[in-house]
Measured scan of single mutants.
Amino acid sequence: MGFKLLSKLLVYLTASIMAIASPLAFSVDSSGEYPTVSEIPVGEVRLYQIADGVWSHIATQSFDGAVYPSNGLIVRDGDELLLIDTAWGAKNTAALLAEIEKQIGLPVTRAVSTHFHDDRVGGVDVLRAAGVATYASPSTRRLAEVEGNEIPTHSLEGLSSSGDAVRFGPVELFYPGAAHSTDNLIVYVPSASVLYGGCAIYELSRTSAGNVADADLAEWPTSIERIQQHYPEAQFVIPGHGLPGGLDLLKHTTNVVKAHTNRSVVE
């Protein structure tokens, strides 16, 4: 069995187990497998329904001669939608809004960016022009300005110390501490036991640490421990890039980060 097929099978099995364990909360999309990078042309966006009122959005972007996937989250909030992270750029984010209108038909009224990198804030200006209120932590807003990236308009308070959590509509926002970046936030959907790890969490097929220019490698494993301790009931975990899975993604990420750190020390 090929690795790609095995990865998709694991996603399907995880979703099936969740649907059985929580039949009222989960209505997993039966329309197909989780979209992969090879299936999404740059400039297009796919939506994948995880649970009743919960979707991931998947886009792709060219970077350094390669094409990478990027995940975000959409959560229903009454007759409105909360968006977590842009679709990595203005063109993708405009396509995301169009796809949401086509498939869901509810307005996106608020959006949260989970850290300051372009795959999370690139497209904020498109959201703002569409009347979406954009939010991020003060740290993310400051770092985005320093980096020359787009800056969300509103500040999220109460997320300055490791372990801080605040309720934001249908989700809980959690600051686990520094990891992929010093400002990275985690998003949890309690009604569906869905954990969105953003770039602080890796997919299972990833074996290298990737972009760690703004990471705190020493603190990252401790931050992941905080996530595990705060959300032990999480059933569906979405990484910032690639295929979702279960809580095993947290341990896998820790292993990859520690291996990278150990290699760096040896070198």
Rank of each mutant, 00 (worst) to 15 (best):
M1Q: 03
F3V: 07
F3M: 12
L6N: 05
L6W: 07
S7Q: 11
L9S: 07
L9I: 07
V11P: 12
V11R: 06
Y12E: 06
Y12H: 12
Y12P: 04
Y12I: 13
L13F: 08
A15F: 07
I17F: 05
I17M: 05
I20M: 09
I20Y: 10
A21W: 09
P23C: 06
L24Y: 09
A25W: 09
V28T: 09
D29I: 11
S30I: 12
S31G: 09
S31L: 08
G32K: 15
E33I: 06
E33M: 07
P35R: 10
P35H: 14
S38L: 08
E39Q: 08
E39V: 07
P41M: 09
V42H: 07
G43R: 12
G43I: 03
V45L: 12
R46F: 13
R46Y: 15
L47T: 14
Y48Q: 08
I50G: 02
I50E: 03
A51N: 15
A51P: 01
A51E: 11
D52Y: 05
D52E: 08
G53R: 09
I58F: 13
I58R: 09
A59N: 11
A59Y: 04
A59I: 14
T60A: 09
T60P: 05
T60L: 13
Q61K: 14
Q61F: 09
S62P: 05
S62T: 08
F63E: 14
F63A: 10
F63S: 08
G65P: 09
A66S: 07
V67P: 08
V67W: 11
P69R: 10
S70T: 15
S70I: 03
S70L: 03
S70H: 07
S70C: 04
G72R: 01
I74N: 02
I74F: 04
I74V: 09
V75E: 02
R76V: 10
G78E: 08
G78Y: 12
G78N: 06
G78S: 10
E80S: 12
E80H: 06
E80F: 15
L82Y: 11
I84M: 10
D85P: 00
D85C: 00
T86I: 04
A87C: 01
A87E: 01
A87R: 00
A87P: 13
G89Q: 03
A90K: 09
K91C: 07
N92D: 03
A94F: 12
A94S: 13
L96N: 00
L96W: 01
L96K: 01
A98H: 14
A98F: 08
A98S: 14
A98D: 06
E99C: 05
E99L: 14
I100G: 02
K102A: 15
K102V: 12
K102P: 05
Q103L: 15
Q103F: 15
G105A: 15
G105S: 15
L106Y: 06
L106K: 09
P107S: 12
P107T: 14
V108P: 15
V108H: 02
T109A: 13
S113R: 04
S113I: 15
H115F: 00
H115C: 00
F116L: 04
F116W: 15
H117G: 00
D118T: 14
D118V: 08
V121P: 03
G122I: 05
V124D: 03
D125K: 14
D125T: 08
D125G: 12
D125M: 11
L127M: 06
L127P: 02
R128M: 15
R128Y: 07
A129T: 10
A129F: 05
V132E: 02
T134R: 02
Y135I: 02
S139N: 13
S139W: 07
S139F: 02
R141T: 07
R142S: 12
L143I: 11
A144G: 08
E145T: 12
V146W: 14
E147W: 12
G148K: 08
G148M: 10
N149Y: 08
E150H: 15
E150A: 12
E150R: 04
I151A: 14
H154L: 08
S155R: 11
L156G: 02
G158Q: 14
G158I: 07
S161K: 11
S161I: 15
S161C: 12
S161N: 05
S162F: 15
G163V: 07
D164R: 10
D164G: 10
D164I: 11
A165P: 06
V166W: 07
V166A: 07
V166G: 05
V166I: 10
R167Q: 09
R167H: 05
P170I: 13
V171W: 03
V171R: 02
V171Q: 02
V171H: 01
V171Y: 02
E172T: 13
L173N: 03
L173I: 09
P176S: 03
P176G: 03
A179V: 04
H180T: 00
S181L: 01
S181Y: 04
T182C: 05
T182Y: 07
D183V: 01
N184L: 01
N184W: 01
L185R: 02
V187D: 02
Y188F: 10
Y188D: 01
P190V: 05
S191Y: 11
A192G: 08
A192E: 07
S193Q: 09
S193C: 03
Y196E: 00
Y196R: 01
G197L: 03
G198T: 04
C199S: 01
A200P: 03
I201H: 02
I201E: 01
I201A: 04
Y202K: 08
Y202F: 06
E203A: 10
L204P: 05
T207E: 13
T207P: 11
S208F: 12
A209F: 13
A209G: 12
G210F: 04
N211V: 11
V212H: 06
A213R: 11
D214I: 15
D214R: 11
A215E: 09
L217E: 07
L217G: 05
A218P: 11
E219D: 10
E219L: 08
E219V: 08
W220N: 00
W220M: 02
W220G: 01
S223W: 01
R226K: 12
I227S: 04
Q228L: 15
Q228S: 15
Q229I: 06
Q229S: 11
H230M: 13
E233S: 13
E233N: 09
A234E: 02
A234Q: 03
Q235K: 06
Q235L: 09
F236D: 14
V237P: 01
I238W: 04
P239Q: 01
P239R: 00
G240T: 01
H241D: 01
G242P: 03
L243A: 12
L243F: 12
L243I: 15
L243K: 10
P244A: 07
P244R: 04
G245E: 02
G245I: 01
G245A: 05
G245C: 03
G246Q: 06
G246K: 11
L249S: 03
L250P: 03
K251L: 05
K251H: 15
H252D: 01
T253R: 00
N255D: 05
V256M: 11
K258F: 05
K258V: 11
A259R: 08
H260F: 06
T261G: 08
N262M: 13
N262R: 08
R263M: 09
R263F: 08
S264F: 14
S264E: 10
V265R: 09
V266R: 12
V266Q: 12
